[in-house]
């Protein structure tokens, strides 16, 4: 009897983990739909067939890398150039992967990590890495599901339908993703001055790299890495934390939902 109920509660918790992931993935999916819609349009303008653009979205699941990729392919660039640009633009995912590995439940096996690793995007990572409780497989799968669907369907829509959505609507919807970033950082910065400091340094470096004459030539993906590494290193140097997880719980940072 007791074994039975234990099993039941395990199923329930797996389900609720999955459900929570699904819920957290919803705003990401909204943002992705509109961002990938514009990617679909770009593919069509560059002369790709609709299924080619959709195939790229389904196998890459990343915005900046895909945009650079189709532009390189359309311009007749070499495979080496293509590989190098993908590597540099997407290198930030390595940093995110290491960071996220610290917040993943220890019972998630190596092969499972290899599968889940596919879903590390800026947004999915942001939500998963700042989660208070360790990330489980059902949570991460739930979190990936809707964004993947949104990314694929948006690309399909853009590639097939082209410019049907009014520009004002797509413009505004791209903010969904940034709104979500803010929903993660602001509550954490509100309760921990250390996090606030790190975020301020990151913003300053990022703006510097965006506006400074020579630095602004750097690719977006690389600029993000530099900004994040500098800010996190300064934070770690000035305000080392004893235990990341406990710190968050005590200061009440991270994602609340």
């Amino acid at each position: 009897m007791s074994e039975n109920s234990g099993e039941q509660s395990n199923t329930v918790s797996r389900k609720s983990e999955w459900g929570e992931g699904l819920r957290h993935g919803f705003p990401i999916a909204c943002g992705y739909f509109f961002v990938s819609f514009t990617f679909g349009i770009l593919g069509a303008t560059l002369g790709f067939r609709w299924w080619e653009t959709v195939l790229i979205s389904m196998t890459n699941l990343t915005s900046a890398g895909q945009i650079a990729g189709v532009k390189t392919i359309a311009a007749g660039g070499s495979v080496f150039e293509l590989a190098l640009s993908q590597f540099i633009i997407n290198l930030r995912y390595s940093l995110m992967g290491i960071s996220l590995s610290q917040n993943v439940s220890e019972d998630v096996s190596g092969p499972r990590r290899m599968l889940l690793g596919f879903g590390i995007t800026d947004e999915i990572y942001g939500v998963a890495a700042s989660r208070r409780t360790p990330v489980t497989t059902p949570y991460f799968v739930g979190l990936m599901t809707l964004p993947y669907a949104g990314w694929t369907l948006g690309t399909l829509g853009g590639a097939v339908l082209g410019d049907v959505l009014p520009k004002a609507v797509t413009n505004v919807m791209t903010l969904a993703i940034y709104g979500m970033f803010i929903a993660i950082v602001v509550p954490a910065a509100k309760e921990s001055r250390k996090v606030l400091f790190v975020a301020a340094v990151a913003a300053a470096v990022s703006c510097l790299m965006y506006y400074a004459p020579v630095l602004s030539e750097v690719s977006v993906g690389f600029a993000i890495i530099v900004s994040a590494v500098v800010a996190a290193a300064v934070g770690a140097w000035l305000f080392p934390v004893e235990d990341g997880a406990r710190e968050t719980a005590e200061e009440g940072g991270a994602c609340r939902e």
């Binding site: 930030r92 890495a129 950082v185 910065a189 913003a203």
Partner: peptide, 21 residues
């Protein structure tokens, strides 16, 4: 140091992606 670094990375990454983009 590395543990603290990794603790700060998510907030640094998200802020750098938001501002000024």
């Amino acid at each position: 140091f590395f543990r603290s670094f990794l603790y700060y990375v998510p907030y640094a990454v998200l802020t750098a992606m938001t501002l000024p983009a």
